[in-house]
Structures are given as structure tokens and as C-alpha cells.
Nucleic acid binder design. Structure first.
Lengths: 248, 248
DNA sequence: AACTCTAGTGGCACTGCGTGCCGTTAGCAA
DNA sequence: TTGCTAACGGCACGCAGTGCCACTAGAGTT
């Protein structure tokens, strides 16, 4: 097999980390091209590996499965997001921080428009690839939800978990919407500007509920209420907030 | 193979639709039990099929893959939701209609607590099963987003697509939150009541669009107060804040 | 220069999923 | 009885994914 039909000059991969990333990327490009050319099901892992000049066994040292071949290394981006959250200003609106976090994902896609656009053509077509992509989105969403929940818990929000999950989903959806638009346009247009607008919709929908500046816990209470709420409910909410604050 | 080791009395499935559903459910139960007992990877499709008294080939006529075995028939629920949307009152708040739609999913899980709880134990543990579940959630979310987008477009909302996606994600997340809580509790508690509260959070975050742009202005009031303030002062402050908000 | 240590690679064999194909069987109608 | 249809079981095949092991290329170590 693979007699002299290999145009690739056998990169042979360095043992350095940069070499690993180069080979990984080469495999991704090979997979995407083959999937687009002859279909996902009709492409074997052998073909992908051969096209990248490596053995089939090596392919599975870079990707867990055939489906994973076309996706970027989400682990790296996830770690970047966690770092951003860990060093985020605690006085800043948590929803905005979450948006900043998910923007790192957007940057990742924008960094390689060619691959991103081709991948999108595949995830639209092949069900199993779409499922994988959805699963990765869910991973990001979990990280966002975890951060938001932590922030909300720290201000005594009894619905911290719910609110964190809902807002994380909204932020992720806003991001996905912008990304999809950009991908459908073939990688043209200012995705960051669109993202600003999309994020604003979410930020305004979930106004900061005591997140702003109450590090001096116990002294100030921030209550967010609908103006249409009945006054007795308002007083109840205030009392509840006071109790939460004093409980700390 | 399968000499006399079959306790199942060979249901032999009717050819009726009800027979099909019964066998499908029997396969699901068999799969869940085996997965829980001896692990997902250690269980083969042969074993599942044998436990249900059918051949391996028949299993794949009821489920596309081994992973699908433990999940309900989402197609039916999706169709129910579409029907509900098709017959929904056009004057009703679209977000509430979306919540009503996703409630059908909740009902579906609540209808069989035993299976649902066991399935949850698996989707928490086995990555590929969790991915499948996430993919199914995405399907529901798409249906919700499609309905919402249609409603928003019909009111001339220029951000109909974005808003539809974001709210669908929020509604789905609220539903998932409630469902997870219920599943973690082992199927106890009033999930519908929790859902009411969770949905309210989303509905209030995205009030019916009279004006598309800034619908939250004048709707919410943020009061920052010292916790040592006397309650009457608190109420006065709230009233003042309300007046300010209404003056805009 | 020979030697070891380590890390990445390729090949081989094996399990099991998923599918196409076909013969068989059960019901239904005339 | 004779078709006709629909579902089932069995068989074989391709290929994904994994464990195992031998091989090779640096990077020291002496």
C-alpha cells in the first residue's frame, strides 16, 4: 500500500510540542479535504492518515475518533477560558465576563477562516459531525454556567444554579448565532462587531443582580425588582436580601 | 448460542404499532439494566437483543446505534411540539408558548420516572451517551428557535433570528435545569412547579417586544441600599426609584 | 563510541458496531 | 391452497477503535 502515491514529503513530525500541533493540523486539513471530496462515510481513517503521511495508529494518538479529526483542540480553548475567569475582576458584571470568555472561542474560529468554513459545510451535512460539534458547545456552556453560578452564589442568589445555566445558554446561543452567520457568509464581515450586538441583547436581558460592587458584604444590599411588582412583594424581597446579606 | 438461557418468554412482538412500541421499550429497559449492571462498554448489542428475546439484527431495526437504545423516541415528542406550536394562539407571548412546548419534553420524562432516573445515571457517567443526549436537546432547541424566530419576524423584529436562538437556548436551559434537579432527587418533588418558576425567570428576562430595542428600560429597578437602613426608608427608596424609572 | 533511556511511530491482531443481503416465517386476502 | 407483505434471524463484510510490541531517533551518561 501507499507505494509512491504520496505527494506529502513525510513531515515526520518533530517531537516538540509545535511539531505535534503541526501534524495535528495537517491531519485535520487532510480529513476535511477528503470528507468534502468523497464524503464522510466513504473516507476511511487509513486514507486520512496516509494523506498526512503517517500511519493509521498514529492518527488515533492525535484524535479519539474519526469524527474528532475535523475539530480544533477544544481543551486548549477551555483552559484559556478558565484562566480568564480565574483572573476576572469580581466587580465586573458576570454576564459580561461570560461573554468575554466565549469570545475566545470566536477568536479561535476566526483565526483560521478557511478551515472553519469548510468544517461548517461538513457539520451542516453530516449528522454525526454536527452532534460532535453540539457536544463541544455544551462543554463551553458548562464552563460558563459554572463561572456564573459561582458569581451568583457569592452574592447570595438562591437561584444561582438556574440563573447560571440559563444565562450561560443564552450567551452561548448568542455566540453561536454570530459564528454561524459569519461561517455562512464564507468568513467575511466583522464577527466581533456582530458579537458585541448579540452579547448586548443578553446582558440587557439579565441585568446585574447585586454583582456590581458589593464586596463589602453585609453593609449594602442590591435588589433588582420588576417595577410592576406589588409593593408588598418588593418589601419581602428586600427583607430576603437583608437576611441573605446578614447570614454571611 | 442462546440455548436455554432465556428467561424472557419470547414476546415475539405483534406487528401492530403498539407491539412495536412495546418491543422498543423492552429493548430500552434491557439496555439500561445491562449498562448499569456491567458497564456500557462491556455490554454488547448481542446481549441487549438476547435479553429482550430478539436477534441482534432486529435491535438495529429499532435503534440506529447502541447509544440510542436508552433514549426515548424523540421524534414523537418533536412532532407533538410542532403541533402545539402550529395551533398556538398568535396573541400569546411567544416565550410562554415556547415554554409550553418544552414542557411536553418534561412530561415525557416524568411519565416514566424509573427509566428516566436510570438513564440519567448513565448519561452522567458515559461520555458518548451524554453527547447523544446533548444532541437531542439541541434538536428541541432548534424547534423552539424556529417557532420563536417566526413569531418575531412576523412582528418585524430585525433581530428575530438572534432573539429566537437566544431565547430558545434560555428556555431549554431552564427546562434542563428543572429536569436535572428532578432526576437527581430520584424522581421526587413537583417538577412542574419548579418549571413554572424557572420559566418565569426566562419570560421576565425577555418581555414581549412592544419596542424591539430596549424593552428592559423601565421594567426593572435596581436599588442599592445599606442593610442598616430602616425598612420605611427602604420602601421610600424603592418608590423613588420606581418614579425615576417611570419618568424616563 | 557504545550504552541506556525515553518518546513517538508503525504494524498486527482482535473486538464489536453497523449494514447489506437473503432465506424464513407469520399474518392477510382472494 | 396460493400469492402478497411485513417483520425477523442469520450470515458475512467493512471499518472504527484498542492493546500490544517491535522499531527508530534523539538526548544524555560514562
Amino acid at each position: 500500500m501507499l507505494e509512491e502515491s504520496q505527494p506529502a514529503p513525510r513531515p515526520r513530525a518533530g517531537r516538540t510540542m509545535a511539531g505535534r500541533r503541526r501534524l495535528r493540523h495537517a491531519l485535520t486539513v487532510a480529513a476535511i479535504d477528503l470528507f468534502l471530496k468523497q464524503g464522510y462515510d466513504a473516507t476511511t481513517v487509513d486514507e486520512i492518515a496516509s494523506a498526512a503521511g503517517v500511519g493509521r495508529r498514529t492518527f488515533f494518538r492525535y484524535f479519539r475518533s474519526k469524527e474528532d479529526a475535523i475539530f480544533p483542540n477544544h481543551e486548549e480553548v477551555l483552559q484559556d477560558i478558565e484562566r480568564l475567569f480565574a483572573g476576572a475582576d469580581e466587580t465586573r458584571n458576570p454576564v459580561e465576563v461570560a461573554c468575554a470568555g466565549v469570545s475566545l472561542v470566536l477568536d479561535f474560529y476566526l483565526a483560521d477562516p478557511d478551515v472553519s468554513v469548510k468544517r461548517y459545510a461538513l457539520t451542516r451535512t453530516v449528522r454525526s459531525l454536527r452532534d460532535k460539534e453540539v457536544a463541544s458547545v455544551d462543554q463551553y456552556q458548562r464552563v460558563l454556567a459554572g463561572y456564573l453560578r459561582g458569581r451568583f452564589e457569592r452574592v447570595g442568589d438562591p437561584l444561582a444554579d438556574l440563573r447560571g445555566s440559563v444565562i450561560a445558554a443564552a450567551v452561548a446561543a448568542a455566540h453561536n448565532h454570530v459564528l454561524r452567520r459569519w461561517l455562512r457568509s464564507g468568513g467575511a464581515g466583522d464577527a466581533h462587531a456582530d458579537a458585541e450586538q448579540a452579547f448586548r441583547l443578553v446582558v440587557e436581558a439579565f441585568p446585574p443582580a447585586g454583582g456590581t460592587a458589593r464586596q463589602d458584604a453585609g453593609e449594602t444590599v442590591v435588589a433588582v425588582l420588576r417595577s410592576s411588582a406589588a409593593l408588598p412583594d418588593v418589601v419581602n424581597e428586600i427583607n430576603a436580601a437583608l437576611r441573605r446579606a446578614e447570614a454571611e
